[in-house]
C-alpha cells in the first residue's frame, strides 16, 4: 500500500527502489525479501538440475518417463487454480466484500491441501515402483525440488488459515490489506516455482 509504514521504515534499499520512484510494492518489503530469498534457493536447485543433466543426460532422459505424469499435470492445474482464487480474494477485499474474499481464501486453502494429498500419493506411488531419492541422480534432484516445494505449499496453506482468522477479526479492508496481499504474492511465487519445476521434471526428456 502507498505510504505503508513497513515499506517506508526499512532504509535498506537505494532511493531509486522506493515506492515513490519505482512504483507500488504489492504486500510489503519484508515479504519481498522473503520471496527473493526463496527464488535464490530454488534458483540453486535449478542450476543443480542443469549441471546434473549435463553430466548424466541418459538418466535425465529416462527419469521423467518413470514418473506419474498425470499427477504432475493435476497438481499444476490445482496450483494455477489456487492462484486464481487468491487473485479473486484480493479483488474482493478491495471491494470490501469480506465474505466473498473469505470464500476464495478457503478455496485456495483447499487447493493447497489437495496439492499436498496428491503429492503425498505421488511419493507413495514412486515408493511402490521402487523409486527413492537415491535411485538415480534424476530422482535425487526430483526429491530435493519437489519435497522443498511441498514444504512451501504446506506452510503457505497454514498462512492462509492465519489470514482467514485475521480477516474475520476485521484486520483487512479495502483501505488496509497489505497483510493479505503479502500472502497473495507469496502464494503466487510458490505457483511460479511449480511452473518451472513441472516441465523440468515431468515434460522435458
Amino acid at each position: 500500500m502507498k505510504n505503508n509504514p513497513i515499506n517506508s521504515s526499512l532504509g535498506i534499499f537505494p532511493k531509486s527502489w522506493s515506492e515513490e520512484h519505482a512504483g507500488r510494492i504489492p504486500g510489503n518489503i519484508p515479504i519481498w525479501v522473503g520471496i527473493l530469498s526463496e527464488l535464490t534457493e530454488f534458483g540453486i536447485f535449478f542450476v543443480a538440475y542443469f549441471i546434473a543433466k549435463f553430466y548424466y543426460p541418459e538418466v535425465f532422459t529416462q527419469g521423467p518417463q518413470s514418473l506419474h505424469t498425470s499427477l504432475g499435470v493435476t497438481n499444476t492445474i490445482i496450483l494455477l487454480t489456487s492462484s486464481y482464487f487468491m487473485a479473486k480474494a484480493m479483488a474482493n477485499i478491495r471491494l470490501d466484500n469480506k465474505s466473498k474474499c473469505e470464500r476464495y481464501l478457503w478455496l485456495a486453502f483447499f487447493c493447497g491441501c489437495l496439492y499436498l494429498i496428491i503429492k503425498t500419493w505421488e511419493f507413495y506411488w514412486n515408493d511402490l515402483q521402487g523409486f527413492g531419492p537415491s535411485t538415480s541422480e534424476f530422482f535425487t534432484v526430483y526429491y530435493y525440488m519437489t519435497f522443498n516445494h511441498f514444504l512451501h505449499v504446506g506452510w503457505a496453506s497454514c498462512a492462509i488459515l492465519w489470514v482467514i482468522f485475521r480477516l474475520r477479526s476485521g484486520a483487512y479492508s479495502s483501505k488496509e490489506n497489505s497483510g493479505l496481499e503479502a500472502l497473495a504474492v507469496y502464494w503466487h511465487m510458490i505457483d511460479l516455482m511449480w511452473i518451472l519445476i513441472f516441465p523440468l521434471l515431468y515434460v522435458l526428456r
Partner: peptide, 26 residues
Amino acid sequence: IALTVTYKGFMVIDHFMELKGANKNL
C-alpha cells in the same frame, strides 16, 4: 516448451501477482 514457460511466468507475474503497473524493479 521453454517459451511457453516464460509466457506462463509472465502472465502470473503481471496479472495474478499484479506487478504490471506496480514496482518496476520487482
